[in-house]
Write a protein that binds this DNA or RNA. Sequence first.
DNA 1: TTATAATAGTTACAATTGAAACTAATTGCA
DNA 2: TGCAATTAGTTTCAATTGTAACTATTATAA
Lengths: 148, 148
Amino acid sequence: MATSDLLLEEFLPYRLSYLTNLISRDLARLYTDQFGIAHTEWRVMAVLGVSGGVSAAHVAEKTAMDKVAVSRAINNMIKNNLISRSFADDDKRRSVLSLSKKGKKRYEKIVPLVRDYEKKLLAGLGEADQEKLDDILKKLTHYVEGDQ
Amino acid sequence: MATSDLLLEEFLPYRLSYLTNLISRDLARLYTDQFGIAHTEWRVMAVLGVSGGVSAAHVAEKTAMDKVAVSRAINNMIKNNLISRSFADDDKRRSVLSLSKKGKKRYEKIVPLVRDYEKKLLAGLGEADQEKLDDILKKLTHYVEGDQ
DNA sequence: TTATAATAGTTACAATTGAAACTAATTGCA
DNA sequence: TGCAATTAGTTTCAATTGTAACTATTATAA
């Protein structure tokens, strides 16, 4: 192998992508298979679960999803009675979104499952390594956010 | 916020996914924007760059892509004269793939770019943290690979 | 005011991806 | 042998996603 060659399995972007995909697949088992919530919908739900009465733009910002994806997820969740929507008095364009009772219920079932998944995932690391990972992810993220 | 709530920005799967997406976007600038190589094609190229004369199944395995995606990437790259294909003497189903001269040339242009990107990405970490990250990624990956 | 630009969100259409069914070749074994 | 099962890779069709153009509303400013 020439020194100019590159082993995918040692290449950080590939390794991160591979790991992320496996984790996504595992999580989909929790919310998609069990509750019919798509990945994008789970993200929307996670934002609205913490703070209701917010706009689609706010959801887009918090989920790092683009507004089209957010719009689709929201409309689908409204169709499934998971979200209720009204519009702001001072700006009729702006939506005011909250989880419905049904949505909140589902959210409260899913959160412990994904928390537990995360916990098990991290369990193999030990306290120090968990903090190290947190620190490293922050640094890497800060770097890649820097050059948009 | 109830204790049952979950902040997306502190949730490891979300953080990994977010970071991975930003890195993918950066890399796409290197090989897609500059050389018209799609993400899937880059992975195929990375495998064939190291070892020619292999089958599509081998590429699928090394890239963690499914055989349909590999088939599409390969056929597109053949159309663009980046890959040459023959079939094995002892099994006419099995393809024997290699980068063409043009493909190898492009590969050799891309590798330094992505290596350099990875290097810069890791530069902010320091030697010890880089090893720590390697170790942590291995552990996490091993965990999620465990429960297929 | 009123025209222009900006913003929130949606729609439409193209490209990408995923799953299942398919073809062709090979293997296993009665 | 010869017939069923397996394997390599492709095709087809549906679902998802991305981009651009769009509607409706609000802000800006001449």
